[in-house]
Write a protein that binds this DNA or RNA. Structure first.
Length: 650
RNA sequence: GCCGCAGUAGCUCAGUGGUAGAGCGCACCCUUGGUAAGGGUGAGGUCGGGAGUUCAAUCCUCCCCUGCGGCACCA
């Protein structure tokens, strides 16, 4: 090792230092003020503790509290350690495990026989604030592996022993102290506990979590916290959470009378008239788009004999997720075991298999709004987002290997256009390639993966590759979209499958007169109508695009003398294809406006004596204070034009 | 499925070992009011289900169901 090293600063200047100089010493060599402000450094891009020595030439960039990424990383990471220390000081028998930084905060997993209560969280928070106020020094040492293991064995911390054993041999075992409290940690950290803002963190919740994410292992207790640089950022975050809660589709679904759930059918939706209107409008739209895209629509059975599921492989691999249906023995005239279909693909192959298919029939794009039932684990159920009964906008394209690329490109174009129509401009594509356990030749994987990749390039979309994440039989694309508040949802999918046609013996007669196996492309754009509607509701906070709104117009009377006219207006609107209702209740216009505004009705037409007399309506749009009086004919024409679905006004 | 928490009127929630209350909503009456809550009266509950403790359970205990927050799952 050289005695002197050369460090380059962000401005391009470089200076010589003795090898082993710490990042903190480098900061001090520049200026007193930088030494005071410094919290960490980037050394050749790696986040570097001020206390760590540098023994090679490289680029160094000293970081301060005004550097977002580094400051938040340290705040959250140190908060995690301070919390773990607080917990062990309050309950010395608790065993510590891991505590990483996550989005907006951190968590730390503990092994403790008693559950943490909300009061415990308060006590922990209080203790954390004391630790922060104490401004205890943070220091670090690199330990010998054997010493670290024996240390934790003696201290009764088996999880730490396991962690150390999992650290690759070429990596140092680093210990950190926050005051008297010690933890295994790769760092970096602050210089003292007082650098964590005491008024900008909050313990959020406690929940269960498995050690190492493995459901066969010990269940631990996880405490989640959020932390920011200052009190205002924390407040903003908490406000954001409240806002997100206001657009929770379960809440809006109730408020807008869209659907409900009840005990007798967990994970299954009771759609109300308003919600079902959204559903059918969306379905009509998808049907038009797919017909336009050259799909044919089919419909296949819900209840299917286990023989088909055995043939498809679902009975062996998916049975725990299937609803098994048997007829009571005393009524049954035949001995059969059926299952509700969890997927449509095997049924679609049955349709394909009827009659001899020619290569001229390919590609055959077979769509179904297929109702599926899956016995999802109880803990997975979540409003419309995760249900046990749902309908996919499913389709299977039967084609030759040569046709995959074009079909894939066409699919991406269709999907992008649908997402745009529904108000989502941005989506990301992930290409999952061959996994370790797979079937099929390397050559065919090469060709099919290339086909998907070329198809994406053709469409000009960006994508990323997720190596090894494909299905055992073929690669796939996943499409994720980002909603109005930045959350990501995985919706669309495109999977290449030579396996199921093989299992279910699908074939076509090729140009050569011989039988061939088609490929089957599984694809969906929305995923399921249920989930997609949930996402739409949250994305728009209930204010869906006009053409999707279940109640588009309410005609509200100001005086009861206008009741007849209101009904006439509603009739005119309905005739023009609009979804309109009259509100002739004995209430003041203020009351009606408020109620329908809260109910997110996009347009309120107020009618009173004046409107009756002149055959007009007074139009008010949701969220606007201004109203506008215009002739009934004009209003009807205008609103009718607005309610045309996007694909029909191109 | 696992850990924790919860379940009282349609909704949001208060409450007590002696079979229940508010606000909103709903019904009826008065009011005919011009753009985000006019007034009055009234109806409405096996306090999630089952067992146990008790003279007595909505309240305490146990089991189950459902929901919520995570975890695991989403071939």
């Amino acid at each position: 090792m050289a005695d002197q090293i050369s460090l380059t600063f962000p401005d391009g200047a470089s200076r010589e230092y003795p090898a082993g100089v710490t990042a903190g010493e480098v900061a001090a060599s520049i200026s007193n003020s930088l030494a005071k402000k410094a919290i960490s450094a980037r050394v050749d891009g790696a986040h570097w503790d001020l206390a760590w020595p540098i023994d090679r030439d490289g680029a160094i960039d000293i970081k301060t509290m005004s550097d977002d990424a580094e400051a938040l990383e340290l705040i959250r990471h140190d908060a995690a350690h301070i919390m773990a220390r607080a917990v062990q000081e309050l309950w010395p028998d608790v065993k510590v495990t891991i505590g990483p930084v996550i989005e907006n905060g951190w968590y730390y997993d503990f092994d403790r026989s008693e559950p943490f209560t909300p009061e415990d969280l308060g006590a922990i928070e209080k203790r954390m604030k004391e630790i922060i106020a104490a401004r205890d020094e943070v220091r670090t040492e690199v330990w010998d592996r054997a010493r670290a293991i024996s240390h934790y064995e003696q201290n009764g911390e088996p999880y730490k022993v396991e962690l150390i054993e999992a650290i690759p041999g070429d990596q140092p075992i680093r210990m950190y102290w926050h005051g008297p409290w010690q933890d295994l940690c790769r760092g970096p950290h602050f210089q003292h506990t007082g650098q964590v803002p005491a008024d900008a963190f909050k313990l959020m919740r406690v929940s269960g979590a498995y050690w190492r994410g493995d459901s066969t292992r010990q269940q631990l207790q996880r405490i989640y916290g959020v932390a920011f640089r200052n009190r205002q950022d924390l407040k903003d975050h908490l406000t954001f959470l409240e806002e997100a809660e206001k657009r929770d589709h379960r809440r809006l679904g109730r408020e807008m009378h869209l659907f409900h759930f009840q005990e007798e059918a967990p994970g299954q939706i009771f759609w109300h008239p308003n919600g079902w209107k959204i559903y059918t409008t969306l379905q009509d739209y998808m049907r038009r788009r797919q017909t336009e895209g050259g799909y044919v629509e089919v419909n296949t059975p819900q209840v299917v004999d286990r023989k088909l599921w055995e043939a498809s492989g679902h009975w062996a691999n998916y049975q725990e997720h299937m609803f098994i249906v048997e007829v009571e023995e005393e009524h049954a005239r035949e001995k059969r075991i059926n299952a509700l279909k969890p997927m449509n693909c095997p049924c679609h192959v049955q349709v394909f298999n009827q009659g001899l298919k020619s290569y001229r029939d390919l590609p055959l794009r077979m769509a179904e709004f297929g109702s599926c039932n899956r016995y999802e684990p109880s803990g997975a159920l979540h409003g419309l987002m995760r249900v046990r009964g749902f309908t996919q906008d499913d389709a299977h394209i039967f084609c030759t290997e040569e046709q995959i690329e074009e079909e894939c490109a066409k699919f991406i174009e269709l999907l992008a256009s649908v997402y745009r129509d529904l108000g989502f401009e941005r989506f990301d594509i992930k290409l999952s390639t061959r996994p370790e356990k797979r079937v099929g030749s390397e050559e065919s994987w090469d060709r099919v993966e290339a086909a998907l990749e070329n198809a994406i390039k053709q469409t000009g979309n960006a994508y990323e590759i997720d190596p090894g994440e494909g299905a055992f039989y073929g690669p796939k694309l996943d499409f994720k979209l980002t909603d109005a508040i930045g959350r990501e949802w995985q919706l669309g999918t495109f999977q290449v499958d030579p396996n199921l046609p093989e299992r279910l013996d699908a074939e076509y007669i090729g140009q050569d007169g011989a039988k061939h196996r088609p490929y089957m492309l599984h694809r969906a754009i929305l995923g399921s109508f249920e989930r997609f509607i949930g996402i739409l509701i949250e994305n728009y906070a209930g204010r869906l695009p006009f053409w999707l709104m279940p109640r588009q117009v309410v005609v509200a009377t100001i005086v009861s003398d206008a009741d007849d006219y209101a009904h006439e207006v509603v009739a005119r609107l309905r005739k023009a294809g609009l979804r309109a209702e009259a509100d002739v209740r004995n209430e003041k216009i203020n009351y009606k406006v408020r109620e329908h505004s809260v109910g997110k009705v996009p347009v309120i037409l107020a009618v009173g004596q004046r409107e009756v007399a002149e055959g007009s309506v007074n139009l008010r749009r949701l969220g606007e204070k201004q109203t506008q009086t215009l002739p009934l004919d004009v209003a009807v024409t205008e609103l009718a034009a607005e309610s045309v679905p996007p694909d029909l006004c191109r």
